[in-house]
Write a protein that binds this DNA or RNA. Sequence first.
DNA 1: ATTAATTAATAAAATATTTTAGTAAAAGGC
DNA 2: GCCTTTTACTAAAATATTTTATTAATTAAT
Lengths: 413, 413
Amino acid sequence: MTDSILVFMIFWDDLESESKPGIALKNNSIKKEIISILSLSGNVTIPDLSKKLVISVPKITALVNELIADSIVSDYGKSTVASGRKPSVYGLVADSGFFLGVDIKHSHINIGLIDLCKNLASTSKHIPYTLTNERHSLDELCNIIKTFIANSAIPGDKIVAMGLNLSGRINSTTGYSYSFFHFNEDPLSVYLEQATGIKTFIENDSRAMAYGEYIAGAAKNEKNVLFLNLDYGIGMGIIINGQLYYGKSGFAGEFGHIPFFDNEIICQCGKKGCLETEASGRALTHLFREKIKSGYASIITKDMAPEDIKLSHIIQAVKDDDVLAIDLIAEIGEKLGKGIATLINLYNPELIVLGGALAETSEYILLPIKSAINKYSLNLVNTDTQIKLSQLNENAGVVGACFLARDRVLEAR
Amino acid sequence: MTDSILVFMIFWDDLESESKPGIALKNNSIKKEIISILSLSGNVTIPDLSKKLVISVPKITALVNELIADSIVSDYGKSTVASGRKPSVYGLVADSGFFLGVDIKHSHINIGLIDLCKNLASTSKHIPYTLTNERHSLDELCNIIKTFIANSAIPGDKIVAMGLNLSGRINSTTGYSYSFFHFNEDPLSVYLEQATGIKTFIENDSRAMAYGEYIAGAAKNEKNVLFLNLDYGIGMGIIINGQLYYGKSGFAGEFGHIPFFDNEIICQCGKKGCLETEASGRALTHLFREKIKSGYASIITKDMAPEDIKLSHIIQAVKDDDVLAIDLIAEIGEKLGKGIATLINLYNPELIVLGGALAETSEYILLPIKSAINKYSLNLVNTDTQIKLSQLNENAGVVGACFLARDRVLEAR
DNA sequence: ATTAATTAATAAAATATTTTAGTAAAAGGC
DNA sequence: GCCTTTTACTAAAATATTTTATTAATTAAT
């Protein structure tokens, strides 16, 4: 069967339709559960499914055979594990569907494509793009996506869904973006769907990164995880019971704007005293420039004016053992650590993953954070919380976007 | 049938046993679902159940009849709603099982008993008891519980389970209490089970109160709720997606001990700068005494030495329009409000319920809290968050304990 | 290498569940 | 007050699912 994705989508729509008599509806819901199990745990055997779903072997066999006939599922040969007759293992047909992930950074876009079996099919990194809150910037974005699809080996109609990350405030349930591209009556997700022809889910960048680390990075197999996106601003993605937590209107996790300091620095958000005003990449950049202006030495300043110094330069300087940069990152780390201690007391998570530009300084920021946590959070609570650096780094966003699109479609519960 | 609880428990154990052939197992699990639906939404009809569970009417009819034969369910007559032949409504048999709730306060205990249908069967409030971390205090507690059962009209063997609240750190999954009664190898819940003969679930007091407000108080029908227990200390109960959130090891919600102030006041927990050090009943009491000592006037001091002033006196003074008390509670409210703004930014809840002793001052504490929230939390985030006063007040704990015991047994998912 | 033990797969028999069709009960319009 | 419409309930027929029994495939032990 050549156009299996068409089959897949027709099949899926069919499963979705609830206007069936009881038994067809039941079979469909069992089929969805089977797909969900296959999607979650890779390849499984018929006895496995039978036990897990408490449905007899012949029944499961019949349904799996139907899924095979629809080319959604395939027999992948015999299991290798011990004693007794070896069962056939079944899995999803990888190329019967693809999922696109689009991660929009400050000055570039990363795009990725995964298949039904979570394999990366193709990527394109660092596509130049400037995100501004204007219509032409949105148009350009759509063109970049369309070009990527046109250039990829996968036919466009095999792409089942797309996940797209934006910074700022996003309600991923309704599909509205409030900080960028809020031009139309319709939600941004609907606009993108119409422009690209692909079912679209939008998500806040930090949340998508959190999801990426949860599915394929540092937070695999954990259930309650906080992901901190330490960049110019501070974002947070919250995973509770293995699912992204959104709060009432999708804005949970505004860690950067908790009233944490008694200072007079006006934050991006308009308030003063936000955590971000003293503990963020932006704060670090300001601090660094001030220090340089007041005469401190650094390897950076050899060929750069203070006002041209970017966060990336400072991060690089830390890696190059620049003393000023190291001192300042430690200062930021100490303050962040006190904030993280607050998070630990409130969420008692099993893991906190540090990502974003600042996390690239690894031990330089990790140690002051850890010592602040010990100082400021309850011992009984923090002993169970691990602190880890991001594993996916700058790929966390794309990976998260791909998987969000996939899981929204496949693992809908 | 006289001893229906015995039947209920035998029946329940039977449902639990997983060593059955497929079909009996399936029927049992559907029966459990039926009980869970009845328990959740009161009385329902057979067509309702059929639609909800996607199981044919004759099958549901057969299972409901079995449940009736077991006297777990009863036919409660015809529905009153419109058009067409009126269906029979079925519900749980109220007195086939009871659930005990024990709420341990600083100097007294409240005990309550509800039946399967959530009706309050009996209560006993303000039983004198002093909670100390000693064996004889635990023994006394067991005696009080046994006496309550002996004196109630309900035979002890009809009590299916008991919920018990304690302040301090509790892991309700394992049943261990760390702050009180941590004498034995076994979890406290097991000790209590052996001492009283009743299946016991222990819970942190603030969490139980949160659950009470969620099931039967100010937070009915909400899904993401924070409950603040504003007393000598500050406790928090978190409800996410309609369920109590515990965190990795059951300590989530340590709001009172977030590092919030840059002061030198040593907290109960040993750290300094905790929110509790300046924004709690304990802080209020200290402040009040200091003010009195330094010459401020108050209606309280007429017949009391400064060191004898208790939190309850100050709360009463606020209600009696005492200016000093009102000023100080507003000061506490402002600081608490800033802390709550942090919670709103992090959790984006739909509702925050204020309970505990301080909440009894109602508007006097509510207004400064609300104005601090507006000042310190992001507008886009806080517009969706309602702030309400507790509806159950000092009953929140007992009610929560009863319902927790009930729901742990009945709505196990 | 043959046999015993273990687990998978399948066919047929036994059982269960859903459908269908018909009856019952209620409300509202004429 | 009768007829139409709507929904509930029930019995029997039709269909589906599980059980049981049998065969197949594999490992480990003799």
